[in-house]
Design a protein around this nucleic acid. Structure first.
Lengths: 362, 362
DNA sequence: CGCAGTACGGTAAGCGCTTACCGCGACGGT
DNA sequence: ACCGTCGCGGTAAGCGCTTACCGTACTGCG
């Protein structure tokens, strides 16, 4: 065996103590910056640590201090075909979730936390994963309605949990964006500025509170002016481009007439809709207007640029972490539900002539 | 205080043992599926676990079994302005790294590992982060040349490390895609099929082995036919769209003539180039041909669609994990460097008329 | 009917840290 | 010059698991 191979036996605090000629308590104190050891002692320990290249074991530290400094994040994944060479287009859906996660991570780092992340296949039972993650972290952030409310509630009794775009339970906090007001504003724009009178809402599965809330706001606004609001089970995508494209294709195949505007539950959905319409030589926005929700980066690179609702995506993640951290450190518990503001972004796909130049970079 | 609040005190294996009327050893044995306890005992333990909602503590388990079942992943992050509402366009760069990470995660899960992930700001010293991650995981996957070779080499002595697009060291393994052959093939296509004779290579920083290898292949191929190869310090992007756009803008500002084809170090770069050219009413590919590298999903949604080199992005991640796992579990050590095959993808941006319809979904 | 063999499951010893507790030497006040 | 005080730093007790080791109660065989 090669002597230069990795760790014959990992270093411990005892090795460092011996090397520095002090006790393990002193090493620990220096490493944790508490109880001010004398500068000279400090110095010797630091030197020993550097010479040996010692890194304290996180598991032991966590066990002893009852804090892992790890936040677990669980989200749904769409496809897992790692062995295939090609990447499905649906990987675009990485964006939304990943921007949130980035927000989590950045906020976590401020507190010295790292992020343990795990995706769950759509058809998998997430329970096992969630338990495993709970055991390895100080608290969990759950995207989407991954769990039924009872299960959530049960697990939340033992582990701090923050959900994203879910619902609060007695023991868990929910963080979401304000769906209602911006959706109403957006639909009002379609109704009042453009005068559309037949509109459809292309939502997602029913157990998505976000989609439901957006749909409700859409309906309410249509009713306000007596416009025809098309919706229902055949107008259910899955938040993804392919599902949306398929719905439009099916609709066209049935030879039904299209509404004047299609309001989508998110940008991915809008992407799929615009794609399929264009394929069928139906012009956006001249023939049919399309709007999204989220304002993912790609939204402004489409032609026409997508009119949508901007969510503070990264901030959603950061807020979720901050709430979780408050629960973990046992300070003042956060509100059961935190709602972040959104804003309507008018671009070209609703019929406005406002396609502007978007420079790369700032 | 509300009694239903989270864990008054976390459950331990002792609680479960008492509840089930067995010893902690039996609980542990059932939970780990070894040493076949009697079905009846097994049953009782399982019931107690379910009733209590017990989840074993990962830190204690890791400390005891000397295996955390966690893989650490460290990569560079571009911008961290979480407090700002807007998302920089550069967040598109999420894609490449995140697809790799997804590959890591999926491969990790097969072995019961979770993924601890941490980004490092471009201007931050990654050492501290890396040590911290090393302490919390069984091994590390490092994107990019995050560390100098000496540092890498030093750290790799104590922790299993796999780098991506870096270089192998005596103690660490490197995983990368085959830059040379596909780049040569791509440039040959530009040279031989399209007859271009002035081409530029828009690379990245010099410490990127990938960029260097691609540049070298580009040069070699140009020399083969005696074409003019433009390159040099003013043709250095940062793998990102904004840097690339700026370089083109500067070039144009100096009123210098453009080459017939711009070969980019990656797709992001090509994105920026195409954007800036279009802004200046320079047509792609009629006036200048552009090619990328990576084949990120968005590449085929540009107009014209991007001619590029496809890397098995997700598989790079999966391969990196598999190599790391081999190191961790001490089986046969993997090769010091693993090179995955790439392939040229001809689309419209090189001047070919091959823009095809790309349906959403499979 | 007695004893070796077997299998189940309990006891206890760590894993590598943090930290409460305490001993010891130096210092200053009287 | 003596003793109380204080600050530094060492000793040891866990943190919640896994698992080696061993006792016990059964089985089957002579």
């Amino acid at each position: 065996m090669d002597e230069s191979q990795t760790s014959p036996r990992a270093l411990t605090i005892y090795d460092v103590a011996r090397h520095a000629g002090v006790s393990i308590a002193s090493v620990s104190r220096v490493l944790n910056g508490r109880n001010s050891p004398r500068p000279e002692t400090r110095e010797r320990v630091l030197r020993a640590v550097a010479e040996l290249g010692f890194v304290p074991d996180g598991a032991a530290r966590a066990l002893s201090s009852r804090l892992k400094e790890v936040v677990g994040v669980v989200y749904r994944r769409v496809n897992a075909r790692v062995d295939e060479f090609a990447i499905s287009d649906e990987d675009e859906s990485l964006l939304f979730v990943d921007v949130i996660n980035r927000g989590v991570e950045i906020a976590a780092r401020r507190r010295g936390f790292d992020m343990l992340i795990s995706s769950v296949d759509v058809y998998d039972q997430p329970d096992g994963r969630i338990d495993s993650m709970a055991g390895k972290s100080d608290g969990l952030i759950l995207h989407d309605p991954l769990l039924s409310l009872e299960k959530l509630s049960r697990i939340a009794k033992r582990t701090p949990i923050v959900t994203l775009a879910g619902r609060p339970t007695p023991n868990s906090v929910n963080v979401r964006a304000d769906n209602e007001s911006s959706m109403r504003e957006l639909v009002a724009h379609l109704l009042d500025e453009h005068g559309y009178r037949t509109l459809a809402y292309l939502g997602a599965h029913d157990d998505s509170p976000d989609s439901a809330a957006r749909g409700a706001a859409f309906l309410a606004e249509c009713q306000r002016v007596g416009a025809t609001a098309v919706t229902g089970p055949e107008w259910r995508g899955n938040y993804m481009a392919d599902g949306a494209a398929k719905i439009i294709a099916d609709h066209l195949a049935r030879d039904e007439s299209l509404p004047q505007a299609i309001v989508c539950a998110n940008d991915q959905t809008a992407l799929g809709v615009m794609y399929e319409l264009t394929e069928n030589h139906i012009r956006v926005p001249e023939d049919v207007a399309v709007t999204g929700f989220d304002d993912i980066p790609v939204a402004r690179h489409l032609r026409p640029q997508l009119t949508t609702v901007r969510q503070p995506i990264q901030k959603l993640g950061a807020t979720a972490f901050d709430a979780l951290y408050a629960m973990i450190s046992g300070g003042t518990p956060p509100e059961p539900e935190i709602v972040l503001p959104t804003s309507v972004v008018i671009r070209g796909s609703c019929g406005c002539q406002s396609d502007v130049v978007v420079p790369w970079g700032k």
